[in-house]
Design a protein around this nucleic acid. Sequence first.
RNA 1: GCGAGCGUAGCUCAGUCUGGUAGAGCGCCACCUUGCCAAGGUGGCUGUCGUGGGUUCGAAUCCCAUCGCUCGCUCCA
Length: 538
Amino acid sequence: MAEPKTNDRMDKIVSLCKRRGFIFQSSEIYGGINGFWDYGPLGAELKRNVKDYWWRAMTREREDIAGLDATIVMHPRIWEASGHTSTFSDPMVDCKTCQGRFRADQLAESQCPRKPSKKPGDHAECQLTEARKFNLMFKTYVGPVEDAENTAYLRPETAQAIFAQFKTVLEVSRQKVPFGIAQIGKAFRNEINPRNFTFRSREFEQMELEFFIRPDEAIEAICGRVATAAELADRQPATADLPPSPTWGWEAWHKYWVEARLRFYEAIGLPRATLEEYWQKPEELAHYAKACVDILFRFPFGAQELEGIAARGDFDLSQHQRFSGKSLTVFDDELKAAWAKLDQAKRAELSGRYFEARRRYLVQMGEPVERAEPQARKDADNFAQGSYVPHVIEPSAGVDRLVLALICNAYSEDQAPDEKGKMETRVVLRFHPRIAPIKVAVLPLLKNRPELVAKAREIHALLRPHMTVFYDEAGAIGRRYRRQDEAGTPFGVTVDFETLGEKGPELQGTVTLRERDSMKQERVKIEELLPRLAERIR
RNA sequence: GCGAGCGUAGCUCAGUCUGGUAGAGCGCCACCUUGCCAAGGUGGCUGUCGUGGGUUCGAAUCCCAUCGCUCGCUCCA
């Protein structure tokens, strides 16, 4: 198998990351700390470029998404509402004989691996440990006193802050459903076992969008119909260019976001061939999810998830509404107006469907039927008046995973000639110029010629306000090119004696522009550098 | 957290079995040379041998503990 080869590749990448200053272990001088990673000079630039482009694509270039930057520590009740307090703390038992691990609350339904007819612990050879709590949330205390009253958590995901601030953002941004709230920020999970370099870390960064939409019943009331996902399928691959239509229900919006997110990855240099789309099967979905698509990248250690795009219904806002006691509904005057024009049968049908959905949710969350029914009835009545809890599509991406994917994807070895024309292996990171940590290197051909150095410094100063520029005069020109290849710098500008006009006036004021991937060189006027480069890195 | 493997210079690794007080290549820095793809010359820096403890006259080497990394169970942004 090619196994050793892929591990080999990952090892080389990890080694390059450390050597060139992309990523290294946190707290290294103290022996490191498991699951935490620092980004060095190049890594910090790369990561920032990724986040900036996401932010730009999600908020600045759209009219229907607003930004948010919320705190990491929030009211602990948030995590009760979201379900993290319970689902993130399963008591587990291990068996010392068979090395199995079982959820303590599911022992009765589990099988002993040695003796499948019995459950763990009942077989004579079983040696179960005490049940241990696995709380995957980082706990802390708000204020100096450490007691249960003051317990709080570092957020295990950024999304919940968006739901908690949903109403406020909606108001201040003067948005209307459908609209989204985007956020980038740190999240923390006490992973049982961090793995695969930065892929599973305990402190990581997320880029999350919650896109709020009308419930399908509202769309049907307003438009008379709901666009099916199949309608969008016919219009592929133009989906993401489609102006969203009022007829889009959750399926269409979900599909739209899958396509939009895939395009995002393409725009930063991850071709579709390196990605996989995985549509979760109904039995794999969380109980509240209507659909979930994972976007996976083919890492050297296997295809692994970069992003999940979930259609979560109105679960999250409903939970926060119940737990906070504050209304998280929106008023939709189009729905109210449309409702007035519906005939009795249609009203009954839509209202009935809405009622049923609300009732099912409340019962599923443990509300007794005698409370759930009247509440669902009230929700359905409000719906008929134009009020509802919006549904949501959640594209949620891991920044660190994406940075790692970009590095893995960019890493390549090719053959380049050395000075004597002998072919040698060249390590090059083929980053898309848009996210490359350094955009251009400015190099005087020789460093012991003050005129060359002065001119190169001048060009450095010219470009620096507009992009990350690296000036390097140390060593032979070939070596400097190779150094930049390893850093993934897409362009190199070399100042030589022609630049100074020593080979005639027609070449005066021109420089060599070297392209990283092709190693092609081109003569370019200094005045043209900025517009040409700016266009390529935008 | 459990099981297995690993940890020596910035990187890749030798030395560990058979204790005798640490090496190679690459890189890095300075100077000289240098006209476009890892050039040449000269000189230079680098290690608490992951950490702590133990055995020993003496530990990178043997023992114990611990931390970190990799793989499997687990998990999924």
